[in-house]
């Protein structure tokens, strides 16, 4: 099938670029690792506070930390795309018969693979810090992180394609990442928040992702929030993909 053929070509090409300087995969993980080592111990005394089920702070904090990796790790993938637009690479692709979806999917798939590697590494590092997890729950969580990563990557690509300059992309992505991460209860469970903040969090799709992955980590598979998390982030991921595809196609009008 042509789409699969094209996606594979674009994916391999993008992955090669990333693997030429693999050190950035690790630099990109620096922020969550710092939170793991220098911030999580602060939460140690909060085991009895509402939201910290079972008194294990790592089990509450690490799922949120991985969502943070998905949000911040993928938010700035639009920058190399701007380089490609400026040097004519994207226009060169657009005058070939290559599937337009493949141009985006090849990039998003690479982002997803990098994100998966980072999530697994962070989780392994977290185990000595007291993380206990349900393995099937963790594996299902990875799907959630993929959805969240796709959302952020596609937003970043869309704005890159619309702005075509770095100066506008950086503040835009910063403006998006900060409220969505604060309003998703990454750092502390939203159960601690005043009611108005909890209502505000309900319109933030990422908060559903965080709730779902917390239940998955402890193997609480009956929880309705798991279902909500998958449906909401999954739908938004698809919508954001089509938005970035639309932005790409608009370049050739």
């Amino acid at each position: 099938m042509k789409l699969l053929h094209d996606v594979r070509l674009m994916f391999v090409n993008n992955l090669n670029h990333t693997l030429k300087s693999p050190v950035f995969i690790f630099i990109n993980m620096f922020q969550p690792l710092m939170y793991l080592v220098l911030y999580m111990p602060l939460l140690g005394g909060l085991g009895s506070v509402p939201g910290f089920t079972g008194g294990n702070t790592a089990n509450v904090f690490i799922p949120g930390l991985l969502v943070m990796q998905a949000i911040f790790g993928c938010a700035f993938v639009g920058f190399p795309l701007i380089d490609d637009i400026r040097s004519g690479v994207i226009h060169r692709y657009l005058v070939t018969p290559v599937s337009r979806s493949a141009i985006i999917l090849g990039k998003v798939l690479r982002d997803v693979v990098v994100l998966l590697a980072q999530c697994i590494l962070i989780t392994l590092v977290a185990i000595p810090f007291g993380l206990t997890l349900s393995v099937p729950g963790f594996l299902l969580s990875l799907v959630l992180y993929i959805f969240i990563g796709i959302i952020m990557s596609c937003i970043s690509y869309s704005f890159a394609l619309i702005y075509k300059v770095e100066d506008s992309l950086a503040p835009t992505m910063n403006t998006i990442t900060l409220p969505v991460s604060l309003l998703s209860g990454i750092f502390l469970p939203l159960a601690l928040a005043p009611l108005w903040l909890q209502y505000l969090a309900k319109i933030n799709p990422f908060s559903y992702g965080v709730n779902a992955t917390r239940d998955l980590f402890v193997g609480n598979f009956q929880s309705i929030s798991i279902f909500e998390g998958f449906i909401i982030t999954g739908i938004i991921a698809v919508v954001m993909f089509y938005w970035s595809l639309h932005s790409l196609k608009k370049m050739a009008t």
Partner: peptide
Amino acid sequence: IRQNVGFVSQVGGADLAS
């Protein structure tokens, strides 16, 4: 048309990272 036409724009279009 895309299959049978080649286009070299002013900026070129080579991927400098490859």
